[in-house]
Measured scan of single mutants.
Amino acid sequence: DETGKELVLVLYDYQEKSPREVTIKKGDILTLLNSTNKDWWKIEVNDRQGFVPAAYLKKLD
C-alpha cells in the first residue's frame, strides 16, 4: 500500500559508510520513511531501511 508514502529522487550516488546507512544511486526514486532530522533522512532501498544525507535527496510532489 503506497498511499501516503512520500517519494524522493536521488540526486547523487552515495555509498553507505555504516550499517545504519544504505547505498543509493543517482536517478533512483525511493520511499521516504522519515525526514524529521534535517541532515539525515531514513529511506527504503530494496527492502532495506537506512539513512542517507538529506542533501542527496529531493522530495517529489
Rank of each mutant, 00 (worst) to 15 (best):
D1W: 10
D1F: 13
D1L: 14
D1P: 12
D1Q: 13
D1S: 14
D1R: 08
E2N: 15
E2I: 15
E2V: 14
E2S: 15
E2G: 13
T3C: 14
T3H: 14
T3V: 13
T3I: 13
G4A: 15
G4D: 11
G4P: 15
G4N: 12
G4K: 15
G4T: 14
K5Q: 12
K5S: 10
K5Y: 14
K5D: 08
K5M: 10
K5G: 08
E6K: 11
E6A: 11
E6Y: 11
E6P: 08
E6D: 12
E6M: 14
L7R: 13
L7T: 09
L7S: 08
L7N: 05
L7G: 03
V8W: 06
V8R: 01
V8N: 00
V8L: 04
V8P: 00
L9V: 10
L9C: 08
L9H: 05
L9E: 09
L9S: 04
L9F: 07
L9A: 05
V10L: 01
V10P: 00
V10S: 04
V10E: 00
V10T: 05
V10F: 01
V10R: 00
V10C: 10
V10K: 00
L11E: 04
L11M: 08
L11I: 08
L11Q: 04
L11F: 02
L11W: 03
Y12K: 15
Y12I: 08
Y12D: 10
Y12E: 14
Y12M: 15
D13A: 06
D13M: 03
D13R: 02
D13Y: 04
D13P: 06
D13H: 05
D13K: 03
D13E: 05
D13V: 02
Y14E: 01
Y14H: 04
Q15R: 09
Q15H: 15
Q15D: 12
Q15Y: 15
Q15A: 13
Q15L: 13
Q15E: 15
E16W: 06
E16F: 07
E16S: 14
E16A: 15
K17V: 08
K17S: 09
K17N: 10
K17Q: 15
K17M: 11
S18P: 04
S18C: 09
S18A: 11
S18V: 04
S18W: 07
P19I: 09
P19D: 13
P19K: 09
P19Q: 09
R20L: 14
R20K: 10
R20A: 13
R20W: 15
R20Q: 12
R20E: 11
R20M: 12
R20H: 14
E21P: 05
E21C: 04
E21Y: 04
E21L: 04
V22K: 02
V22R: 03
V22N: 02
V22I: 08
V22Q: 04
V22L: 09
V22G: 02
T23N: 05
T23F: 03
T23P: 03
T23H: 03
T23C: 04
T23D: 03
T23S: 15
T23Q: 04
I24Y: 03
I24E: 00
I24L: 05
I24M: 07
I24F: 02
I24V: 15
I24P: 00
I24D: 00
I24W: 01
K25T: 10
K25V: 10
K25I: 10
K25A: 08
K25F: 13
K25E: 06
K25R: 12
K25N: 08
K25P: 01
K26D: 03
K26H: 07
K26W: 04
K26V: 07
K26T: 07
K26N: 06
K26F: 05
G27T: 02
G27A: 03
G27F: 04
G27R: 02
G27D: 06
G27Y: 04
G27S: 04
G27Q: 02
G27C: 08
D28M: 15
D28T: 12
D28A: 12
D28W: 15
D28E: 15
D28V: 05
D28S: 11
I29D: 00
I29S: 02
I29W: 04
I29K: 05
I29A: 02
I29V: 12
L30A: 15
L30P: 03
L30Y: 10
L30M: 05
T31D: 06
T31W: 13
T31F: 11
T31P: 15
L32K: 01
L32E: 00
L32D: 00
L32P: 00
L32G: 01
L32M: 04
L32Y: 01
L32S: 02
L33F: 04
L33D: 01
L33M: 08
L33A: 03
L33Y: 04
L33P: 00
N34H: 06
N34G: 06
N34E: 15
N34I: 07
N34V: 08
N34F: 07
N34P: 03
N34S: 12
N34Q: 10
S35E: 11
S35N: 07
S35P: 06
S35C: 10
S35R: 08
S35Q: 09
T36K: 12
T36S: 13
T36C: 12
T36L: 11
T36M: 10
N37T: 06
N37E: 11
N37W: 07
K38I: 10
K38P: 15
K38S: 11
K38W: 06
K38T: 10
K38E: 14
K38A: 13
D39T: 13
D39C: 12
D39M: 14
D39G: 08
D39W: 15
D39A: 10
D39S: 09
D39H: 15
W40K: 02
W40Q: 03
W40S: 03
W40P: 00
W41H: 02
W41I: 02
W41P: 00
W41M: 02
W41D: 00
W41S: 02
W41N: 01
W41Y: 05
K42G: 05
K42Y: 15
K42M: 15
K42D: 02
K42N: 06
K42Q: 14
I43F: 00
I43Q: 00
I43E: 00
I43W: 00
I43C: 05
I43Y: 00
I43N: 00
E44K: 11
E44C: 11
E44I: 09
E44V: 10
E44W: 06
E44A: 10
E44Y: 06
E44M: 11
V45L: 09
V45T: 13
V45Q: 08
V45W: 08
V45K: 15
V45F: 14
N46C: 13
N46H: 14
N46G: 15
N46A: 14
N46F: 13
D47A: 09
D47H: 12
D47K: 10
D47W: 06
D47Y: 09
R48P: 00
R48F: 06
R48M: 07
R48L: 07
R48K: 10
Q49P: 05
Q49V: 13
Q49A: 10
Q49T: 12
Q49N: 08
Q49L: 06
Q49E: 11
Q49G: 05
G50D: 01
G50T: 05
G50I: 08
G50L: 07
G50R: 04
G50K: 02
G50A: 07
F51E: 04
F51M: 07
F51I: 07
F51T: 03
F51Q: 04
F51D: 04
F51Y: 15
F51W: 15
F51A: 02
V52H: 00
V52C: 05
V52E: 00
V52P: 01
V52A: 12
V52I: 04
P53S: 02
P53G: 01
P53A: 02
P53L: 03
A54I: 04
A54H: 03
A54D: 02
A54M: 04
A54G: 05
A54C: 06
A54W: 01
A54Y: 02
A55L: 11
A55T: 11
A55M: 11
A55Q: 13
A55V: 11
A55P: 08
A55H: 13
Y56H: 15
Y56A: 15
Y56S: 12
Y56V: 14
Y56M: 10
Y56T: 10
Y56I: 12
Y56P: 01
L57K: 00
L57A: 01
L57V: 08
L57M: 03
L57D: 01
K58N: 05
K58H: 08
K58I: 11
K59C: 07
K59G: 04
K59M: 09
K59L: 12
K59A: 07
K59E: 05
K59N: 05
L60D: 03
L60V: 11
L60R: 03
L60W: 07
L60F: 08
L60M: 09
L60Q: 05
L60S: 04
D61A: 12
D61W: 08
D61K: 12
D61V: 11
D61P: 13
D61N: 14
D61Q: 11
D61Y: 09
D61F: 10
